[in-house]
């Protein structure tokens, strides 16, 4: 299986409620010490496209092997796409919606 580079969306109460309402609460995974995350996978090309569009974001190659520090509004859009489409396969749609 090809390697994936997740974008971790950190789950607060508001996001958890939306996931529960959409029947997607099981998608959230334990991150650490009780904190939950929604890891939205990207492939290598998608990862590079995300990092290019959002230069403040960073691929944490040392610890978590995930894309971090995406602006909050970008993460909100990814999260909303997951809830709307009921799938984690939303990065192409996200990138297409990003100018």
């Amino acid at each position: 299986m090809a390697e994936t580079y997740p974008i971790n969306i950190w789950i607060n109460e508001e996001r958890l409620e939306k996931l529960q309402q959409a029947g997607l609460a099981d998608m959230a995974q334990e991150a650490f010490a009780g904190l939950k995350k929604l890891p939205v996978p990207t492939n290598e090309q998608q990862r590079d496209a995300v990092l290019q569009k959002f230069p403040m974001a960073k691929y944490d190659s040392a610890t978590t092997k995930s894309i971090e520090l995406l602006p909050r509004d970008a993460k909100d859009r990814i999260f909303d796409l997951v809830v709307e489409k009921k799938t984690l396969d939303v990065i192409d749609a996200f990138l297409a919606s990003t100018i």
């Binding site: 971790n8 969306i9 950190w10 789950i11 607060n12 334990e30 991150a31 650490f32 010490a33 009780g34 904190l35 960073k58 944490d60 040392a62 610890t63 978590t64 995930s66 971090e68 520090l69 995406l70 602006p71 909050r72 993460k75």
Partner: peptide, 23 residues
């Protein structure tokens, strides 16, 4: 083990989420 880093904590705070007190 569940590793965490300064980058991850910044990312969590940027998402408007309060990290657990153990972290």
């Amino acid at each position: 083990q569940q590793g965490f880093s300064g980058t991850v904590i910044r990312s969590i705070i940027q998402d408007g989420v309060k990290p657990p007190r153990l972290i």
